[in-house]
Design a protein around this nucleic acid. Structure first.
Lengths: 169, 169
DNA sequence: TCTGAAAAGTAATTAAA
DNA sequence: TTTAATTACTTTTCAGA
């Protein structure tokens, strides 16, 4: 039932360009049934979109680092993510609990680029940095264990009749 | 020329299911020309594969945390990544320079699950953990600035870029 | 919610400029 | 490296169970 949805999500995280034909065969359903379910998963937001995975080596970005930042002056307005967004070397920005304010994931060509990016981070956001260089990546972006909420993330048990098919404005 | 390849990679990271027809229109080339270039990008390893992006909220995994680990007994063989690979809550595993040995990215349903996973990490790999909870994610997995090496990733300029990698095979 | 089938659109190959 | 034409496959929609 939604074991099938789980299988669909798992298959599409493994290969986002799978045809509905192949997908149907994989999950043991007809093509149009699978098609329908994928559309519902997309509408519910379970599937957000599709992307090509790129090799950072091939893009000449072999050096990854985590950069923890905290403001020089903690009394000033904290808009570091916005002030740093223009730096294409920043892959991700996480607001974190703990001693640091943000944790950045950065990808560059080499140490000299890392040095430059760190300087740009410091001056752009008026922060201090603490950098952890990544030596290798045993695994990354593994597909999550899919456990689907039957009607999306806001389900209330027994609250109302089946409204899954209706669309908000 | 390879400005076009850059445009193709950028377009496919933004939407991995773009048809060659749309892609061709986007980059101003014929369909089969684009098709050819995509195949070359895939063969060169610039494009590694395609995935569906899933919403971790929708999958009931709203809590993200970074878990830094180091071994209880540093003299024992260090195979933490392998010993932890069975835990589906671990999204990524980075081997890092610095005081810690590895940095894990973990996604769970809530604090109780995080507690359980931390215990499983400690017992599975015989390590201590230091956990940083993510409060929010201003941005994540941004498309990199695409700067293509004309002949792919096997260009030799000095010989240092080889082992500093960030991607698994 | 499923199946099966038809129409429209797309992929992947080939020949050739 | 490109365009253009071909064939097979895929997506999408529909009627019906």
């Amino acid at each position: 039932m939604e074991e099938i949805d789980r299988a669909i999500v798992a298959a599409l995280t493994a290969d986002g360009r799978l045809s509905y034909t192949d997908l149907a065969e994989k999950v043991g359903l007809s093509v149009s049934a699978v098609h329908q379910r994928v559309r519902r998963l997309e509408q519910r937001g379970v599937i957000n979109g599709y992307t090509a995975r790129v090799s950072f080596e091939a893009l000449d970005l072999p050096l990854t680092a985590f950069v923890a930042i905290r403001p020089f002056d903690p009394s000033q307005p904290d808009d570091a993510p916005v002030r740093l967004a223009h730096l294409p070397e920043i892959d991700s920005c996480y607001s974190v609990a703990g001693e640091d304010f943000y944790l950045l994931l950065v990808r560059v060509a080499g140490p000299l680029d890392l040095e430059r990016v760190l300087q740009e981070i410091r001056t752009s956001a008026n922060v201090t940095t603490r950098t952890t260089v990544v030596l290798s990546t045993p695994y990354e972006h593994r597909p999550p264990k899919v456990a689907l909420d039957p009607a999306g993330p806001h389900r209330v048990r027994g609250a109302s009749a089946e409204s899954a098919g209706s669309q908000p404005g």
